[in-house]
Computed example of a mutant assay.
Amino acid sequence: MRFDFQKQWPALLVAIALTLGSCTGTNPSAADSPDATTAPPTPVATTPTDPAILADLPRLEGQATVELMVNGSPITIEVNGGDAPITAGNFVDLVERGVYDGTRFHRVVREPEPFVVQGGDPQSADASVPVSQLGTGGFTDPETGQPRMIPLEILPEGADQPTYSKTFQQAGITESPALTHERGAVAMARSEFPDSASSQFYITLTDVPFLDGSYAVFGQVTDGMDVVDGIEQGDAIESATVVEGLENLQRPEAGAASE
């Protein structure tokens, strides 16, 4: 299919916005420099495929169903731990902790064509936080006092294990991801560094194939896309609830990974 650069350029700018300044520890000024995305991100010092690192993170062994209440109406998300166990486990764990309750969608892009709604910044639950600061926050683990970052995790179609810490382009992978950015896909926002996703997520308002292989999709809206379509910037997640599959969430045992 022919790529219409002129038509897609506004959406690409928003993709840059999804990438830059979307998580704790990012440099907001980098968002003013689109050229920053042209070079591969600096590799992390330790690969998250190290079992000790993965053992420190929640994991979803199977499926779960999450319900978001927005503007008094439910949005049902099927969370796919089979294809994205760490990313899905992180999301379900944060839902169960109540991290998303009261947070607001700080980025909504529909013009010049539908793109995404983005939320999940814990700062957005505090009305005193300036709007200009939203999109820079992430989850801090109260037990450790440290930000929780999760690795970029994308399963190539037909593969047994996800690829970690690299986009498909960086890893030289030509296959499609098992989970793609079709309308209603739920995926993690991150900074320019692959392993910087925390709590922020977005829902696609249309098919967005050029994000495939660069961002981690972990779920799909199965009911309530009409509610998603009506979300405006500043709308709150009144509640987020795991309604099914919580037994599939595996949390790390305290101190297990550090022994």
Score class of each variant (00 low, 15 high):
Ala185Phe: 05
Val227Phe: 09
Ala254Thr: 13
Val99Lys: 01
Thr42His: 11
Thr65Asp: 12
Phe115Met: 12
Ser22His: 15
Leu68Val: 13
Ile75Asn: 11
Ala197Met: 13
Glu111Ile: 10
Pro156His: 01
Ala254Tyr: 00
Gly245Arg: 04
His181Cys: 05
Glu113Tyr: 14
Thr163Gly: 10
Asn248Tyr: 01
Trp9Asn: 14
Gln133Pro: 05
Glu244Met: 02
Ala127Ile: 14
Pro194Gln: 10
Ala257Arg: 08
Leu18Pro: 11
Val208Tyr: 00
Gln200Gly: 03
Asp32Arg: 10
Glu259Tyr: 00
Ile77Ser: 02
Gly25Met: 12
Phe193Glu: 10
Ala256Tyr: 08
Ser128Lys: 06
Gln118Leu: 06
Val108Cys: 04
Met225Leu: 09
Phe91Met: 00
Gly135Asp: 03
Gly89Ala: 15
Ser258Asn: 02
Asp207Tyr: 07
Arg59Gly: 02
Gln170Arg: 15
Glu78Pro: 03
Val242Pro: 04
Leu12Pro: 10
Val243Leu: 08
Ala236Cys: 09
Ile75Leu: 14
Gln233Pro: 01
Leu54Trp: 00
Asp212Ile: 04
Glu153Leu: 09
Ile150Val: 02
Trp9Ile: 09
Ala15Glu: 08
Thr47Arg: 06
Gly98His: 04
Ser198Tyr: 02
Ala17Cys: 15
Pro209Arg: 10
Thr222Ser: 06
Leu134Met: 00
Val79Arg: 08
Val227Arg: 00
Pro112Cys: 14
Pro43Ser: 02
Glu157Ile: 03
Leu211Phe: 13
Asn27Glu: 13
Pro34Glu: 02
Gly219Asp: 01
Leu54Asn: 02
Glu232Ile: 13
Asn27Thr: 05
Met225Asn: 07
Gly62Pro: 05
Ala11Asp: 06
Asp226His: 07
Ser29Ala: 15
Val208Pro: 00
Pro48Lys: 11
